[in-house]
Design a binder for these strands. Structure first.
Length: 256
DNA sequence: ATGGCTCCATACTGGAGA
């Protein structure tokens, strides 16, 4: 079973690239972030013609997440991150598919930091960790994946010293991420590739992709019940070089 | 230190992204 995550940065602008990538990689389940489209503008027909059912949580202009499935039935569990009725941003979707809970998230960017956007990021992170703790306590197969907007370590950024004050790398952000990991979650990419330099995002500016000046901010976290089933993982780095690419790269895992 | 690029909105410009 192959599961992928891809921050598309606008599903309408990205549709040709998305469909080409789906055709090439044939993932069973796909978590998408940054749809940048309201619910009624989600390209349901094109996704269906590509062979996928879909559940989506859209929003006008910004944010938006979706989960696609090629073969397995999906059952929606949670829409929107619990814990704050005033938070209307579409950043979290949770489903059960093939006996696995899959959480698709788009964690707030948080820049500029400090400031209200950074406060929102940390508050959102606290609520994510509460939900993750609930799932961990169930002792079942769970995948938490998506765009975390977190650079976990210095190894995950091309020039760490330039990012120390950024909301993606500040101590508070890394502390929240490490608190999540400390619940017992396993970083799938680092299990398969403990030492390699792996990036999932390249800025549109300054030929970042050509210089391999990237960040690793899209992650796959596996519950203990699932980690033994991990057989492979990777990033589709070449997709970043395609015409009209997203600034993010698809990330995937394979489970037995 | 700045700006470089790309997306979306109701649009010839600005906000957000990371």
């Amino acid at each position: 079973m192959k599961i992928a995550t891809y921050n598309v940065n606008g599903i309408r602008a990205r549709l040709p690239v998305l469909l080409r990538w789906l055709e090439q990689e044939s993932p069973d389940v796909v978590c998408l972030q940054e749809l940048k489209a309201p619910d009624d503008k989600f390209p349901e027909k094109e996704i269906e013609e590509a062979g996928y059912s879909a559940i989506w949580h859209g929003q006008k202009s910004w944010n938006g997440v979706a989960i696609l499935s090629r073969e397995y039935e999906m059952e929606e569990v949670v829409r929107g991150l619990p814990g704050d009725p005033d938070d209307l941003q579409s950043r979290y979707l949770e489903v059960v598919v093939n006996g696995i809970v899959i959480c698709c998230l788009y964690l707030p960017n948080g820049n500029p930091a400090p400031g209200p956007k950074f406060d929102y990021k940390l508050e959102w992170f606290d609520r994510l960790n509460l939900r993750a703790q609930e799932l961990m306590a169930l002792d079942i197969p769970v995948v938490i994946t998506g765009d975390f907007n977190v650079i976990p370590t210095e190894k995950d950024v091309y020039k760490p010293e330039r990012w120390v004050d950024d909301a993606l790398f500040r101590p508070e952000t890394r502390a929240a991420y490490h608190a999540l990991i400390a619940q017992g979650w396993n970083d799938a990419i680092r299990i398969v590739y403990p030492y390699d330099v792996i990036y999932t995002f390249y800025d549109y500016f300054r030929n970042a992709f050509g210089r391999n000046a990237g960040l690793r901010i899209d992650h796959f976290l596996l519950s203990p019940k699932l980690v033994d089933r991990l057989t492979d993982a990777g990033v589709n780095r070449d997709v970043r070089g395609w015409e009209k690419s997203s600034d993010h790269v698809p990330v995937w895992i394979a489970l037995k």
